[in-house]
Structure formats: C-alpha cells, structure tokens
Design a protein around this nucleic acid. Structure first.
Length: 256
DNA sequence: GCGACAG
DNA sequence: ATCTTGTCGC
C-alpha cells in the first residue's frame, strides 16, 4: 500500500487559487531586497540549490544539494519522492514545488548552513513579485536567488548597457547571457538584484546553466531514473521513501 | 476577446 | 516539467 504521506489528502482539497494569490501578496510584503550576503563571503563557503523533476502518474522528486564554492565539491544532499498534488499554474509554481522541495531542504539545512540558496524558477520577477525563490527565501529565512530559463513577466530593457526585465516600473530581473542564451536572474529574499546577478555570474561553468542549478537538475534527473527502476521492481513507494537519503548520497558520484 | 504563460 | 525521432559530435 501507499503511505499516507504520499497521498494528496488534505493538500489538494486545501489548495485554492484565490487564496494562493492572496498568500503571494502577503509574501511580497515580506520580501527583503537588502544584501545579507556579500560577494566576498562565498569563497570556500557552502552554497546550496534545490530543484524538482517529475515522472508519470503524478510522482515528483524534490532535491536539495549543498556544495563548496569554488571547488563545487558536493558536501551533502537530500531527496524525496512523493505524489504531486497541485497542478502547474503559471504564477503559482511555488505551491506545486514547495511541497516537493521543503522536506529535503529542511533536512539539508539541519546539517549545513549555506550562504545562499539557488532556486530553479523566478523570485522577484513574478506577477506579484513573489515567485518560488521568494517563497523559499522567506519561509526558510535564507538568501535565495531565482534562476529561470524563460521569462514569466516583464519586458526587456537596457539600463547602463545591461539587459534587465522591467515589470510595473520596477527592474525585477537582470539577464545573464550564457552561450548566447538568456538566463533570468532575480532575487528571492535577503539579497539585491545586482548581487544576485553578480554572484550567479561567478557560478558559470562549462554548462548552459549556472553550476548550482545544473547540479540540482542533474541530481533530480538521475534520482528519477533510479527511482523508476526501484518503483517497477517493488511497486511500493513506501519502501523507496525510506532509503531516499542513502540513495541521494550514492547518486552524488554519478553527477560528474 | 486575445495573447502570454517559471516548472 | 515530460514525451519523443532523428541528428551531430566525441
């Protein structure tokens, strides 16, 4: 049988679009765009990233990974697999993915103290200035940077020879070019737009994404492959769930 | 009404 | 995000 925790009872029923939108307006009032991290304070320190991936039948995988900068040696990781209960609605991504990400992230933060957390998705560059990077940054009270491959809101503008996204008269995102592809960087919480951009710029490697996001994305996809094998073998989500933390550590070696 | 629309 | 056939390159 499937463990209660993997069902959507009490989650799907409690999700309501207009309440969710109201929650985001409340979040937007709590955003702190001041810098709680200096670009000089990340050398040889811990950085973290979170991401989610999905399989068939409403199964989602959430991962949290911590590594050292600039070696990118992975220090720790956590992951979880559970049923996905909330649909994807543009602007409300956080309500779908927080559910997958919060558990592994909480476990990770009990063990390591990252200077900053990278999140796959927008932060400030959001219809209500509260994307998933903002949700996570406020709930976990940590500096977060939102990294998105596609824009959600705003128009491109040039200011001081640099490319930004402007929305409702505010500069909400600064666009980073990696191999001629646009990456939309926006602050989540406890960090400024410029600092978000400058720190992200340091994280460019040989991939088309900033390294933290690349690593989290890679881990979630490797985990998914391994989960599907286990799932088919055992047909039992419960038994998989108990070993996810160990599985995560085993998968670290496969990333590189 | 029409187009846009993170993952 | 995921699904997918074929193609390019190491």
């Amino acid at each position: 049988m499937i463990k209660d925790d993997n069902n959507c009872v009490g989650i799907r029923e409690n999700f309501n679009v207009s309440i969710a939108i109201n929650d985001q307006i409340l979040f937007s009032k709590k955003i702190n765009l001041n810098d709680f991290i200096n670009i000089r304070d990340i050398e040889n320190k811990v950085i973290a990233a979170v991401d989610a991936s999905y399989t068939k039948n409403d199964l989602g995988i959430g991962v949290a990974i911590a590594f050292e900068y600039p070696s990118y040696n992975i220090i720790d990781c956590e992951l979880i697999a559970r049923k996905v209960c909330i649909p994807y609605i543009p602007g409300l991504l956080a309500f779908r993915e927080m559910y997958l990400i919060s558990t592994p992230l909480l476990k990770l933060l009990k063990k390591v103290k990252p200077q900053v957390l990278f999140v796959d998705g927008h932060g400030y560059a959001h219809p209500r200035f509260a994307g998933i990077a903002t949700h996570i940054g406020i709930v976990f009270d940590i500096p977060t940077i939102g990294i998105a491959k596609k824009k959600l809101v705003g128009e491109e503008v040039v200011e001081n020879n640099e490319l930004y996204l402007r929305f409702k008269d505010r500069l909400v995102s600064k666009i980073l070019l990696i191999n001629n592809k646009k990456i939309y960087v926006s602050p989540g919480n406890k960090i400024s737009l410029e600092n978000s951009f400058n720190i992200t710029k340091l994280m460019i490697g040989k991939f088309n994404l900033p390294i933290p996001i690349y690593l989290a994305d890679k881990l979630s996809k490797i985990a998914k492959r391994n989960l599907e094998v286990s799932y088919l073998d055992s047909s039992n989500i419960f038994s998989i769930n108990n070993n996810l933390s160990n599985l995560c550590k085993k998968l670290i070696n496969k990333i590189k």
